[in-house]
Every structure is written in structure tokens, then in C-alpha cells.
């Protein structure tokens, strides 16, 4: 059994929210953005993370690279716990873990040239490199991600969204990381460009043997790229399984509801007949439901769900639900009725 590249245990991020106008001695509210997440990531593997907007995906990513304070454990392949490292010790790992951001243009400094932007991680981690060599490597990387190397002196606003995302990918790759965390890298792009960027990521991953964490807010994007998929809801893991298994046999009611909303390219497909509606709105992370966080919207919730939080099951297909399994016709019908009411 090989060691996982990253082994995350009970990762939690809680923000202290000081309500506006409150006095300094008032106790701040607790916003539980990530509430105990466990997963492993193997070398060379792609883990997809899906969940509605606001469920803590970005916060999870930022906790892993130490941008927000977190508790729990995130063990790197060499046995070091990334969460407990001091900023100085963390520096070594910052070149191993790189990030690609959601908004391609906003993640590039408008006052810097593409060359300066891509070179920044390199010059930060290898300050002794000669100028010419940095430039050489930047150009080689630009070519690798499908940009023309002679555009090195251009500014971000002169590029399209897809090209900007390629610049972001080049910046992440230039220090030869082992893991790249992509936080909704294609959500801001046109559908036609999305496929190009995803294919680029897949190609680069194969070529360089990278691990990827690929965050998205809908399952259809993740399916193509992921080996395994993790479904998050309100900062908690609902289900983790291999991509094929999850799409073919979703166990958690939430996963099933999400999957039912993925459009299928089929002439007979009728969205009204197939979508399982979720009742109500996403609860506030300031005041999450007791027990299972999904129970307030679950078509299968029972008394036990309100008192006892389900643990994530063991094995290859992990589910956090007291009553896992495919939704029955009656449950779907009930969900539709409450939605209509």
C-alpha cells in the first residue's frame, strides 16, 4: 500500500464573525465553514470536490495551503502535518502545492507582464536563478500550456479568459509542484473554453504525474476529470467514491438530488420528470442544523437524523448517512409534493 500524498483528518475551519456595530467585548458568532472533513489523495490522482456555492470548498482549499487558520490534520507524503507547520516551515511546501483560481483575470496582477506573473513563484522559491534562465523557463512553460512565448511582455488585460486561465496554470506549474488545487478553474469561462482548459489540465497531469484537487459547483464538470469525487454540503463530507461508482450508484440523498439536476444529452430527457427538488434553502453556516446537516432538506429525514450526526462510512465508497441507498419512487414523489406546496 503506497502512502497517500495528502491525508486529511477532521479538518475544521471556523470563522469568528463580529457582527457590524458590535462592541469589542461582545462574543463573536462562529461561522463553521468547514466542519470536519476527511479524505485522502494518492499521488497522480485527481480528486473532484463538488458542492453548492458557499458550502466551504474554497475555504477547504485555502486551509490546506495555510491561508486560513484551521484545526485537524493534513499529513503530507513525508509525514509532516501541514496544518501545524509554522509559516517558515510551510514555505518549503508552498512550491509543492500550487493553486489555480476561479476568476482568471482577477487572479493576475494587472500591472505585471505575463512573464513577471508566471516567474513569481519561481523567483520566490529559487531567488538565485539567473534572469536569462528564469525567462527561458517561463517561455518553455508558456509553450507547454498553449501560449505563444513571444507574448511574454504582454499584460493580462490583453488576453481572453481562457488564455488568462492558461497563464494561471503556467504560474502554478513553473515550480514543478506535486499537487495543484484548482478552485473552480472553469466556472467563469464559456462552455466551449471550459473543455479546452479541462483537457489541458488532464494532459498536463498525465505528462507531469501531478495530483489534482479539482473544485467545481456542479457534478457534470467534475465527472470528466476526476478519479474520485467528494461531495460537500455545508462544510461536511456527504459522500466520497470513485467517479464511475458515484455517478452510477449514488448513495446519499443529496448526491442523488445533485445528479438528477445534471442535464443529460438525450432527446427523451425531461428535466421536470427527472429532477429531484431540494426543499428550502441552504441553511446558514452560522447556525447549522443539529445532527445531520442535510436533514432539513432531505426527503428521507427521520427523528434520528436530528439528534445524531452520521459518521463517514469506511471502504471505497464512503457515505455519511444513516439511511443510504437509492431514493424510492415514493420519496421522490414526496419531495416533488413538498416543493409544489
Amino acid at each position: 500500500m503506497t502512502r497517500p500524498l495528502l491525508d486529511v483528518r477532521d479538518l475544521r475551519v471556523t470563522f469568528q464573525i463580529q457582527s457590524s456595530g458590535a462592541m469589542p467585548w461582545h462574543k463573536p458568532k462562529q461561522l463553521r465553514a468547514v466542519g470536519g472533513v476527511d479524505f485522502t489523495l494518492n499521488p497522480g490522482e485527481t480528486l473532484g470536490i463538488v458542492g453548492e456555492s458557499g458550502c466551504g470548498k474554497s475555504t477547504l482549499a485555502r486551509a490546506l495551503i495555510g491561508l486560513v487558520p484551521a484545526t485537524g490534520k493534513a499529513e503530507w507524503i513525508d509525514g509532516k502535518d501541514l496544518i501545524s507547520l509554522s509559516p517558515r516551515q510551510m514555505m518549503k511546501y508552498r512550491s509543492d502545492i500550487q493553486m489555480v483560481f476561479q476568476d482568471p483575470l482577477a487572479s493576475l496582477n494587472p500591472r505585471m507582464t505575463v512573464g513577471q506573473i508566471i516567474a513569481e513563484p519561481l523567483t520566490t522559491h529559487h531567488p538565485n536563478l539567473k534572469r536569462a534562465e528564469v525567462k527561458e523557463r517561463v517561455k518553455a512553460m508558456m509553450e507547454k500550456v498553449g501560449l505563444l512565448p513571444n507574448q511574454i511582455n504582454r499584460y493580462p488585460h490583453e488576453f481572453s479568459g481562457g488564455q488568462c486561465q492558461r497563464i494561471g496554470i503556467a504560474r502554478a506549474l513553473i515550480v514543478e509542484p506535486k499537487l495543484i488545487i484548482c478552485d473552480e478553474p472553469v466556472s467563469a469561462l464559456d462552455v466551449s473554453i471550459q473543455a479546452q482548459v479541462i483537457n489541458l489540465l488532464i494532459r498536463l497531469q498525465k505528462e507531469l504525474g501531478l495530483s489534482l484537487v479539482f473544485i467545481a459547483h456542479d457534478l457534470s464538470v467534475v465527472k470528466h476529470i476526476s478519479d474520485r469525487v467528494m461531495v460537500l454540503y455545508l462544510g461536511k463530507v456527504m459522500e466520497i467514491a470513485s467517479s464511475d461508482d458515484l455517478y452510477a450508484h449514488p448513495q446519499h440523498p443529496y448526491t442523488q438530488a445533485l445528479l438528477s439536476a445534471v442535464p443529460v444529452p438525450d432527446p427523451d430527457y425531461d428535466p421536470v420528470a427527472s429532477v429531484v427538488p431540494l426543499k428550502g434553502d441552504l441553511p446558514s453556516p452560522l447556525n447549522p442544523p443539529s445532527g445531520c446537516v442535510f436533514r432539513t432538506r432531505c426527503p428521507r429525514a427521520e427523528a434520528r437524523c436530528a439528534t445524531e450526526a452520521p459518521a463517514l462510512s469506511l471502504g471505497d465508497h464512503q457515505v455519511a448517512c444513516h439511511f443510504p441507498g437509492p431514493l424510492t419512487e415514493t420519496e421522490i414523489a414526496r419531495a416533488r409534493r413538498t416543493e409544489a406546496a
Binding site: S95, Q98, M99
Partner: peptide, 11 residues
């Protein structure tokens, strides 16, 4: 995000 990107790389 570009500030966050710089922080993430350890600038």
C-alpha cells in the same frame, strides 16, 4: 485573487 495567489506561493 492575485494577492491571494501571491500569498499562496509564499511571497
Amino acid at each position: 485573487e492575485f494577492i491571494e495567489a501571491a500569498r499562496a506561493t509564499g511571497v
